[in-house]
């Protein structure tokens, strides 16, 4: 047990001293995850609204596939994107492998189904009376759409935060597509795996504590947003 406590003490010291390597890794993780979440949200929010409002042939099958994709294993996404962007793959010329852009591409694919599905659910949960009410109040088509988004705002924000929570903690995509390159693609999760293997236990714990704190904040936000519309 002694080495665990010792590791924790050293980890806390690393965090308090704002160890430059720790800061750099955390910054890379936060930066990549934020960009991935933003891009996935730009596609996923309109996508989720469209899926909830538009009826089309095969929608049941589409919904089933979408629900299945919610639990996509990160290494499977990593593998699929790797096969596309590796030097022999169809997108090899873009030279995305082992770059931040490569990680972002994989993470967007990973969380896109989550954001689409959760936004779809958020729109479904809205009371149908909102439409008649908006029309009778004299809202234009655009104003009706804005009112719809406004009513679903907590659910939509919850979907975005859930997506962020998924990418900040994933390891498969970052490892396979980023290659864990120091100062370029080394994220919190890939660094924990590497440094612990190298015997830098306290460094791994420091990153683990930071990741845990981020996860706590993300979950707190999700809980807050889920209860926000039931004030």
């Amino acid at each position: 047990m002694g080495y665990i406590w010792g590791g924790i003490k050293q980890a806390i010291a690393l965090i308090i001293q704002l160890d430059p390597e720790v800061v750099e890794i955390v910054w890379t993780s936060v930066k990549l995850s934020t960009i991935s979440t933003l891009l996935a949200s730009i596609i996923g929010i309109p996508g989720g609204i469209a899926v909830s409002k538009i009826d089309f042939k095969g929608k049941y099958l589409f919904d089933t596939i979408l629900n299945t994709l919610l639990s996509l294993p990160t290494v499977v996404v990593g593998l699929a994107v790797y096969s596309l962007i590796s030097y022999r793959g169809p997108l090899g010329q873009l030279e995305l492998l082992f770059t931040g852009k490569g990680i972002i591409l994989g993470q967007v694919i990973l969380i896109l189904p989550i954001i689409v599905a959760l936004v779809r659910n958020a729109i479904h949960e809205i009371d149908d009376r909102i439409y008649d009410t908006a029309i009778s109040l004299g809202a234009t088509g655009t104003q009706r759409f804005r009112l719809l988004i406004s009513e679903a705002r907590y659910g939509i924000m919850g979907a975005v935060v859930a997506g962020y929570g998924r990418v900040i903690g994933e390891v498969g995509v970052s490892m396979m597509l980023g290659g864990n390159i120091r100062r370029v693609t080394r994220t919190i999760t890939t660094a924990i795996a590497l440094e612990t293997n190298k015997g830098r236990f306290s460094f791994g714990i420091a990153l683990g504590l930071i990741l845990l704190s981020i996860s706590f904040i993300v979950n707190f936000l999700i809980y807050y947003l889920q209860t926000g519309d039931k004030e």
């Binding site: 009376r129 909102i130 008649d132 009778s136 234009t140 009112l147 519309d229």
Partner: peptide, 18 residues
């Protein structure tokens, strides 16, 4: 839209926005 804006409806089960 022009005509709707001259009318108002009070519904039996009103929906109020959040």
């Amino acid at each position: 839209l022009n005509l709707r804006r001259k009318f108002s409806v009070i519904w039996q089960e009103p929906y109020l926005y959040n």
